[in-house]
């Protein structure tokens, strides 16, 4: 999985920024990291991030609920928690179905 040539990574994003924006390779890599970190910082505060044409990331609060350890069958209380959800934009959904 990690060696799948079709898997895009931060390095590929940095390379694309290097070509599109014309910063140095080093600066391009740093900028990709800073942009993604900014997105994560906002989500960490519980705010949502809306990228038009791509999708929305939002933080949802889950109540406590009773779960079960699937291996042992023992009931456990799952504590209330916050989870991140991503809703893709109609444009992204269409691109994924049409290929181009």
């Amino acid at each position: 999985m990690t060696n799948d040539p079709k898997t895009l990574t931060r390095m590929d994003l940095a390379e694309a920024v290097y070509h599109d924006v014309g910063l140095s390779r080093k600066a391009s890599g740093e900028m990709v990291d800073v942009v993604l970190e900014e997105v994560m910082k906002v989500l960490e505060r519980g705010e949502s991030v809306k990228i038009s044409g791509f999708g929305n990331f939002s933080v949802r609060s889950k109540r406590a609920r009773v779960g079960r350890n699937p291996k042992t069958g023992v009931e456990v209380t799952i504590t209330p928690r916050k989870v991140l959800v991503f809703k893709s934009s109609p444009i992204l959904k269409e691109r994924v179905n049409d290929g181009k």
Binding site: L13, M31, I51
Partner: peptide, 27 residues
């Protein structure tokens, strides 16, 4: 603006081609 657009466009293009995107730390 071009830099930020490039990041999300690249992710979109990879998914449109049926590929995966792995961004360490983020998801």
């Amino acid at each position: 603006e071009r830099l930020v657009n490039t990041i999300f466009d690249e992710i979109t293009d990879a998914l449109a081609e049926g590929g995966r995107v792995e961004l360490r730390g983020l998801g």
